[in-house]
Amino acid sequence: MTATVPMVRADRLMKKYGSNVVLQDISLEVRTGEVMCVIGPSGSGKSTFLRCINHLEKIDGGRLEVEGELVGYREKGGVLHELHPREAARQRRDIGMVFQRFNLFPHMTALENVTEAPVRVKRQPKDAAVERARTLLARVGLGDKLDSYPGHLSGGQQQRVAIARALAMEPKLMLFDEPTSALDPELVGEVLDVMKGLAADGMTMIVVTHEMGFAREVADSLVFMDQGHILERGAPRDVLATPEHERTRAFLSKVL
């Protein structure tokens, strides 16, 4: 794979629920190593776009590629063929996702949450997976919470376990769906710090967020979405300081 192939390429992507079009004409590229933040009012399609990238949602038009590979389809002689669920699962392995509500497995300890997919999906030996999980949990600052169940952890701690769980699959791309929106304000910082560390290590990240400070400081590019369209895209400083659209200005004036 050459360096010119972008990590994510969306070309006139369209998604609808019934007759309700939720994503329209989404075209963008995310380079390997890039951190892209997506902002916009709720209902603008940010999360849906994120969920299309790992095929949790099916797209209805356009093209979507991750590292040059079509998401959810195979192209043969100019015709698209739907992928078997097994192949779709294989595509998702390399894409980590972190959810607004953590979605940790409540019946497993922090350590078991992190080792589950490597052992069951990648068939890593148990010992190696546990060793790596310890390292990852230590990295997110939870080396002393290995045997805690999610119900005994704070929201911020749970989200950090969720990040470690995603990293355990050694993803080439990380998707964050409003990772701090369900947290109490004083717990937001600890999660953002972990994400900053990831960005500094060169992880390709797409982050749907309302944290403008994080976007300004960490993101390489910022996308503003509204009603299923990309209204604006550019360097965070430019978009935040001198937005081109009236809609962006109105949104930013409310959240900044």
Binding site: P85, M97, F99, L104, F105, V121
Partner: peptide, 14 residues
């Protein structure tokens, strides 16, 4: 919770 299935799916579990 539906989020459980989604989280597992996102990890590549069938």
């Amino acid at each position: 919770d539906r989020g459980q299935e989604e989280a597992a799916t996102a990890l590549g579990m069938g």
